[in-house]
Simulated scan of single mutants.
Amino acid sequence: MAKEGPNWEGLLKWSLSHSDGTSPPRNLSEEDRKWFMEAMQAQTLDVVRRMKEITLVMQTPKEVLDAQGVTSADIEELLDELQEHVESIDMANDLHSIGGLVPLIGHLKNPEAGIRAKAADVVSTIVQNNPRSQQLVMEANGFEPLLSNFTSDPDMTARTKALGAISSLIRHNKLGIAAFRLANGYSALRDALTSDNVRFQRKALNLIHYLLHENNADFNVVSDLGFPHIMTHLASSDDADVREAALRGLLELSRDKASATSSSEDDEKLKRVLQERINDISSMSVDDLSAAREERQLVDSLWTACYNEPSSLRAKGLLVLPGEDDPAPAPDVAGKFFEPPLRAWAANRGADASTAEKKAAPLLLGPPSQSGSNTSTDANGQ
């Protein structure tokens, strides 16, 4: 008989009653402390066991999975579940310890585009703000298939997800940034900017801005590759996020005088684009102006940096609207009291039980061996 799981609803209520975010936590009784630690330990063991089961499926040869009726959609569902588990940094780091990181990286080369994309998504979650997992992925040669998918995958979603994973992998990671530069990553980013996929463009622009902000030595490289010209074109994109990201990149470049030299034709084009943005902003409704707050500030800052004078947005009173200086909303003081497993449980406590069984189904399918029988027992014992 499966062991009854911890009372997560009771645990959540207990956490809320002991921490309202306005006063220091009170001392716990020994009984409360013991109950809390047992509940958390049970959840940790359960997640690790589930990750081991998913790892077993990832390690199973494709022909065996096919013979057992496991589809690509089933694998994508398992990767979705794995991504939820590795949102916890501890679980992300444990994935390598239980042997799951290498087969996950192997799925970046899967013949199914959906699986390649989802595997990149999971890698992105694992390495985000996680130096230990960044190092583990680099040591497991995870950078190479990500770069290959980013530059040449025939599926645009897989390319975009790979770029997102690379962005997370090399952020605050000197070895990762060095590897990206050596692999001619900037040329790949230039190609991404010239694509017709706005999501791909946005991710590329955001990574470019980060790299320029962190590495002043790259300004000349970016300028030589023609990024200012491309960014100027994207500053008039129909997509607001692309426009803002392009303006942000141009503003970063404008702060480096050594690389700011450009032809008079490029200067005129930039001035024309900025004036067009000013005209469009001037004709916006109040609601649209509020939504375009960052773009207004970027246009004015870039105009000031390039032409040593404020833009006409200031004179028109459109740079700062009434009420925009109001204090920001209060921070989420309760969030810090909840670990990722509690957040995940709270978000899904109303889920249908049959859905959970459906997601676990692929784990019941495997090689008809003794180990497969053990896997089925583990899955049913959740």
Rank of each mutant, 00 (worst) to 15 (best):
Val242Lys: 03
Pro24Cys: 01
Ala188Phe: 14
Gly106Lys: 02
Leu364Phe: 14
Leu270Cys: 00
Asp80His: 02
Val320Cys: 04
Pro24Lys: 04
Val273Asn: 01
Glu144Phe: 08
Asp80Gly: 03
Asp378Asn: 12
Val70Cys: 08
Pro103Tyr: 15
Asp90Thr: 00
Asp326Ser: 08
Glu244Asp: 09
Leu365Ser: 06
Ser168Cys: 13
Gly249Ile: 12
Ser301Ile: 03
Thr304Lys: 07
Ser223Asn: 05
Val102Leu: 11
Ser369Cys: 05
His96Ser: 12
Val320Lys: 02
Pro6Ser: 14
Lys161Val: 09
Ala330Glu: 15
Gly69Arg: 10
Pro340Ser: 08
Ala120Val: 10
Arg116Tyr: 13
Glu252Arg: 08
Ala245Ile: 06
Asn215His: 13
Thr261Asn: 05
Met51Arg: 05
Glu76Cys: 02
Asn129Thr: 12
Phe150Gln: 06
Gly366Val: 05
Asn220Ile: 10
Leu95His: 03
Phe200Asp: 03
Glu252Thr: 14
Leu250Met: 08
Thr71Ser: 07
Pro322His: 13
Ser23Arg: 04
Pro331Asn: 03
Ile126Cys: 14
Gly69Ile: 10
Glu244Tyr: 04
Lys271Asn: 04
Ser373Cys: 03
Val299Ala: 09
Pro322Asp: 13
Ala140Gln: 04
Ser15Met: 10
Leu163Lys: 05
Ala379His: 01
Val48Pro: 00
Ala260Glu: 13
Met231Tyr: 12
Gly176His: 03
Ala315Asp: 11
Met91Lys: 00
Ser236Ala: 15
Asp266Gln: 07
Thr151Gln: 14
Ser373His: 01
Ile170Pro: 00
Arg293Leu: 08
Ala328Gln: 10
Asp332Ser: 08
Pro340Thr: 03
Asp332Thr: 04
Phe36Lys: 07
Gly350Ile: 03
Arg116Trp: 12
Pro327Lys: 10
Asn173Ala: 11
Phe180Asn: 13
His85Phe: 15
Lys118Ser: 03
Glu38Met: 11
Trp303Ala: 02
Ala260Cys: 10
Asn279Leu: 08
Pro61Gln: 06
Ala178Glu: 13
Glu294Ser: 05
Asn141Trp: 13
Thr22Arg: 03
Pro327Ile: 12
Glu268Trp: 10
Thr55Trp: 10
Arg248Glu: 15
Val273Ala: 02
Asp326Thr: 05
Ile177Ser: 06
Ile230Asn: 01
Ala315Gln: 09
Leu169Ser: 06
Asp238Ile: 07
Asp352Gln: 03
Asn220Lys: 07
Ala2Trp: 11
